[in-house]
Design a protein around this nucleic acid. Structure first.
Lengths: 339, 339
DNA sequence: CTTCAATGCTCAATCGGTTGAGCAACATTG
DNA sequence: CAATGTTGCTCAACCGATTGAGCATTGAAG
């Protein structure tokens, strides 16, 4: 095997291959990118060049290729966090599905910081991303506007925006169904329904307000009363949820609607610090395999990640702009039985 | 605000800005990339160009910039999965730390598929990545060899390789300490130590064999006997772990060393299906906030992700190759007390 | 009044692929 | 034997940013 590494520190280019093969750079280029039949290059030359490329350990320079083609096939994704099941699953499946469609996925994690989100969008635009999928951003419309001016399409995932098509969970329906389950279980376990609490999320976050609306709808349906002081929305962070729980004044028997596994981390820490509270039940909007095994958990709402991503890629791979502004995907309620 | 979008569908380039500003493209380029003082451009011109760039919504074409500079500042990372805490935390912190050092992180997820791993490496080389960090790969040396031929440095994370410097956890020490804790707890809870089982991982995986070695060392120390039939290594998958547990013949009292949270998903599913087994205790190598709350869990081993990444970036950002072939970072044992 | 340096720019080549246009050689048809 | 078509390539102009070389202009020193 001829290895170039030792001779020259530089990577071989199509010009090097052309020289070795006794062909022109354009022939080599078309052979390696598959357009050689259309350009009437003989199979013999193609085979020879491919063999030489392999021997030389050739790898195309995508920077040069994308620059000239003015097509990058890059789909960017902006994600707030990787370190929970929901966004981990989104990132992983997005990557797989993008690759399956011949696209280059590039994912950036922004820690829920609005400035980082915007910087990430700028960076993806500079990478010549053709579409950017925005997830869990604080200011999706600001990003959409900037990207639109740069000729880059954006799609919102898991959040609604005015300036781009949005694919999201049916947060209202999912929360209503989860609350119904919670009411049913606390009634079974405690004899009657104690006051229900809503914990987690941010007051101005769309998903949070929709889930609160679903929560309230289920309460109204069951003729249970709702009180604003039983709603704790300290933001997306386990420690903030824990702190909010510490502050609150709970009765002996409680039922808790937990908004996201992130808040759940705080809630279960609180339950763990107050072991005597065996008369607590909770349900969580979001799924996690270990949280599903906690004794006081009556059910979890799994967001349909493959379903949402399928709808998303329908939009990504379709040329036109004739898409509905907003697509809601139903959630999957997973009731849990313990003991 | 002058918006170009409506007038021309194309993104503005330095040539467009130069025309508007009445300057040359080279002046614009140097102003926007910060080299204008060295190139003796006046502050007045610089300000004017910067203002126009902002007005036009200019974003650099990184493809062109990287092509010309022949420096990409890209650090690639190959990761098997995002959807568990350990790799989620690695990906997230890697991104943050890379950005803090002025590098462009690009992360790819390969689903533990050897072919996808190699393709991902090829793709990162084509993106002109300058360094590639390989995590959880099946054939790290194959990737290192290919990258070395292309002049791209590789570093192994969480796995050892012969062909590249490797940063990994002290799997032996971590497993030994976790096993010691498990022995102590089962002895306290059951009066004496029942046979201990080892569940999870793959027989030819380095981390698995090191952890098994640590497990055996702690058994030997406590003068407990070891039996090969109490070692279940069905691979990294919850369902395979569950299936292996179903097959096994367990006594009434058991202690289980669980190798990774992925295997733990199967183990806890088994425990959940066999609720009468209250005389089971387990410890898990890897940390998860919800798994930490399961009653039978005596402790978890948290791998020191920031510690490992700090050592990793020491290598990334240093020019030479004078690094020790292998750096082991101690794990953090988190004992758990329930009830 | 020349000499020299400093200031503030511009020119043009370059990075590595891509692609429309075109050319030579040979075969086929009228 | 000329006209036309087919095969198998090559040429050269790009894509957009970068950068070494170089060129006016102004000011100060000798």
């Amino acid at each position: 095997m001829t290895r170039k590494g030792a001779v020259s520190p530089k990577r071989p280019t199509i010009y090097d291959l052309a020289q070795i093969a006794g062909a022109s750079p354009s022939a080599v280029s078309s052979i390696l990118n598959g357009s050689w039949k259309r350009r009437r290059i003989s199979a013999a030359t193609a085979e020879r060049v491919i063999r030489i490329a392999q021997e030389q350990g050739y790898a195309i320079n995508l920077q040069a290729s994308m620059l000239r083609r003015e097509r990058s096939h890059i789909v960017g994704m902006i994600v707030p966090k990787y370190d929970n099941r929901y966004f981990g699953a989104i990132a992983e499946q997005f990557e797989t599905m993008a690759r399956a469609r011949g696209l280059f996925p590039v994912i950036t994690c922004t820690q829920r910081d609005p400035e980082l989100e915007f910087d990430a969008a700028r960076e993806l635009v500079s990478y010549q991303a053709e579409t950017i999928v925005v997830t869990g951003a604080t200011e999706p419309d600001r990003i959409s506007e900037f990207c639109a001016a740069a000729g880059v399409r954006t799609i919102n995932l898991d959040l609604p925006g005015q300036k781009a098509p949005s694919v999201l969970s049916d947060n209202f329906g999912g929360a209503r169904d989860l609350t119904r389950l919670l009411i049913q279980r606390v009634t079974e376990d405690f004899g009657n329904a104690p006051p229900l609490w809503f914990v987690g999320g941010r007051p101005h976050d769309h998903n949070t307000t929709e889930r609160l609306r679903g929560f309230r709808a289920a309460l109204a349906e069951a003729q249970l009363d709702f009180a604003a002081e039983r709603v704790l929305m300290p933001g997306y962070s386990p420690s903030k949820a824990l702190a909010a729980m510490e502050q609150a004044d709970f009765p002996a028997k409680i039922g808790i609607f937990v908004n996201s596994t992130i808040a759940l981390e705080g809630v279960v820490r609180w339950l763990n610090d107050h072991k005597h509270r065996t008369d607590a039940r909770f349900g969580c909007f979001d799924w996690d395999p270990f949280a599903a095994l906690l004794a006081q958990n009556v059910g979890m709402t799994e967001q349909d990640v493959p379903g949402m991503l399928n709808r998303l890629f329908d939009i990504v791979t379709s040329p036109g702009d004739q898409f509905p502004a907003r697509i809601e995907v139903p959630c999957i309620l997973k009731p849990l039985l313990h003991g």
